[in-house]
């Protein structure tokens, strides 16, 4: 009787070791934590040149209602090689991601950056409007 009990216990232990834990569903496709926050806005914007020094001629004007970012850049700025930097509300993320230098030289075609809220339910597209000094 005891032997049977031991065998059953061993089989149970073996089978349970084959089960894996279910994946945590509180992270998004980028592995970032999905929170309860619904705030969704850009709080600051910076534009750096190839030398990582700002190319702005004045602070960027961020309109959170019209969802635009107006930037006046210095004369002669090489917009083919710039690094945009966004400061977002807590837990937000940006789409598309900025992974390195960007080409923003096509001024007639304003680039759209979408801010996604911490709960991943609100998406706000911001239009980046660049003008030369």
């Amino acid at each position: 009787m005891t032997i049977y009990f031991k065998i059953i216990l061993a089989v149970l232990l073996l089978t349970s070791s084959f089960f894996s834990c279910e994946k945590d569903s509180f992270v998004d496709e980028d592995g970032l934590l999905i929170t309860f926050r619904s705030e969704c806005f850009v709080s600051n914007f910076e534009l750096l040149g190839a030398d990582f020094v700002t190319v702005r001629a004045a602070p960027a004007i961020i309109d959170t209602v019209a969802q635009t970012i107006d930037v006046l850049v210095l004369f002669g700025t090489d917009l083919k090689n710039v690094y945009p930097q966004f400061t977002l509300a807590t837990d937000c993320k940006l789409d598309p991601k900025i992974t390195g230098k960007m080409d923003l030289s096509n001024l007639s075609d304003s680039k759209i950056f979408t801010v996604v809220s911490g709960n991943r339910l609100v998406r706000k597209p911001y239009k980046l409007i660049i003008k030369y000094q």
Binding site: K80, N81, D103
Partner: peptide, 9 residues
């Protein structure tokens, strides 16, 4: 790659 042919400032 894609660097400009001038450097001002």
């Amino acid at each position: 790659t894609d660097m400009p042919n001038y450097a001002i400032g």
